[in-house]
Design a protein around this nucleic acid. Structure first.
Lengths: 130, 130
DNA sequence: GTAACCAGTTTCCTTAAAGTAAGTGCTTTA
DNA sequence: TAAAGCACTTACTTTAAGGAAACTGGTTAC
């Protein structure tokens, strides 16, 4: 997460026309950007989904996501770990075995993923015309 | 929307462990990425929120979003227009008056924005500890 | 003993997103 | 008539994300 999110704040002064029921811009946009920092990007959701399907090992995950490279996977897994969405477990075998699993916390993302999925489905229909 | 979304497909073969109730990867990830193509990025949501607050004119929107530049605003508004989220109306005054408003379709994004907002709020607490 | 697997890292390169700054053609205000 | 506002556009630069390929240091299988 980039901690410079504050500078993203929106003024929203003078909502001259129908200032009605809109909550304060900051309150909406700051968390939304925090969330997008975590899940936007090309690989984060694919990885979460792959891991949720039972792909636990590095090479296993890599193979399950076409076109991803080790470099990117490595970096994204670290990101997801710092966001507490993925857990990395090292087993003291010879050689070491590393396993990635989703944390219980990752399931809090379900509603976000479902909302995005639903919207994406109807949006594709809308833009492509049926 | 980038139409190369197909190449993003996930293999997800052999869900050897607990292949249980996970829906097909394609079905989840494709729409999610379609949605993210539209709403991710630094400025799309801030703009949507500013316009929803009643900022209709170009300079008005620009002033309500700190640090945005005319160039970026111009480009993003075009994007939002092609996605049918924003309507651009030109009034035949002297000089021309241009107004941007959200389309009714934009309100279909509400559930996405709310899900992101909620998740972002609790995530910030979680990561920053309290 | 060499090929292949594992879990990555390192280096170099391309592309895309975004920022900086200035300019355009028009009109209203002082 | 000079300054400022409107709705932008253009040209140039910086930054970040992502891709390609090779390489490390270990282990097991042939």
């Amino acid at each position: 997460m980039q901690m410079k999110t504050e500078e993203l704040t929106i003024d929203c002064g003078r909502p001259e026309v129908e200032s009605s029921s809109h909550t304060d811009c900051h309150k909406v946009i700051m968390p939304v950007r925090d969330a997008l920092d975590v899940i936007s990007g090309k690989w984060k959701l694919p990885i979460i989904i792959a891991v949720s399907r039972g792909h636990k090992r590095f090479r296993d995950i890599e193979r399950s996501i076409p076109k991803i490279t080790s470099k990117v996977l490595s970096k994204e897994l670290k990101d997801l770990e710092t966001h507490k969405l993925v857990k990395r477990t090292v087993y003291d075998t010879q050689p070491v075995t590393v396993e990635y699993t989703l944390t219980p916390y990752a399931s809090t993302l379900d509603s976000v993923i479902i909302a995005l999925q639903k919207w994406g489905i109807q949006h594709r229909k809308k833009i492509l015309g049926k």
